[in-house]
Amino acid sequence: MQHTRIHKKWALVTGALGGIGQALVKEFADEGYHVIATDIKVSNDKIDNVYFLQLDLEKFVVNELYATEFYQKVKEITNGTGISSLVNNAAIQILADTSSLTREQWNTSFNVNLSAPFFMSQLFLDDLTTNIGSIVNISSIHATQTKKEFVAYATTKAALSSMTRNMVLDIGSKIRINAIEPAAIATEMLKAGFDGKEEQYKKLEMFHPLGRVGTPTEVAKLAVFLSSESAGFVQGACISASGGIQGCLSDPS
């Protein structure tokens, strides 16, 4: 059966101003997509075929009118055709011990990292179905392996990966939905955290069997592939992009 292809493909990327987000925007644009880039921060950058919309994901989750207004803005930008690829990339990482984590920190983590991807997917479900589109959720290695003080972040990512698998049962063959679970990625934020700690950064690299951390571009290229027809039989997958660290034990030996 031949599907009618839409003339202009639109991708929507959340968290577009972060390290991985910027790479996602660039890769989708380079692949011929027109990109709607959203972030809570404001951007005045002018990039060909990229349209920036400021978006507060917590407000998006709790305020249905705000979400509806956002949908209408996207409809206007796309001239009514809607998006064919949704990349739920935005996340917040609040570090706190179980004994001190506040209700506000817990709820913010779940609103941004889990509820926003769900309601964003729900909001664009009809458009994505019409355009034979796909959803890519940027999860994390923390969905399965984590460390101290990551209880809120890791729990949201585990739930996001689970949601990816479970939504397939509802959406069936309408659209595809998959997740990427990256390990350490060399974003500016990660590198800033190791400023003046070169030995510790080298140790982090060596923890990965590949001998290095990943790049934002590698995550972005995988997202573009998962959004493409070449990944047509990939459905409900949570794909590790971990440089092999996912199989490692941190033994003292």
Rank of each mutant, 00 (worst) to 15 (best):
F70S: 00
K73P: 02
A11Q: 12
I175Q: 12
A154M: 05
G133D: 05
V224Y: 14
G21H: 00
K59R: 12
D39L: 01
M1G: 15
V42T: 08
D56R: 04
N79L: 12
I171Y: 07
M163A: 12
S84H: 03
Q93S: 04
Q93F: 11
N111G: 02
I177M: 11
L204F: 07
I175V: 15
K59W: 01
Q2D: 10
S99V: 02
V62C: 11
A91V: 06
T129C: 09
L12A: 04
N166V: 05
I132L: 12
K59E: 15
G32H: 09
M163N: 03
S230A: 13
K174S: 14
K8S: 08
L24E: 05
S242M: 07
M163I: 09
A90W: 00
G82F: 04
D127G: 06
T187Y: 08
N79C: 06
D97G: 05
K202C: 06
A183Y: 04
N166Y: 09
H3V: 08
A237M: 15
H208F: 14
S250G: 00
E218M: 11
V62K: 14
S100Y: 04
D127H: 11
L123E: 08
F225W: 14
T130I: 13
T156W: 12
H34G: 00
Q22V: 08
V87K: 05
D30L: 09
L95M: 10
A37C: 06
I185V: 12
G232M: 14
I180K: 09
T156P: 07
L190H: 05
L160W: 07
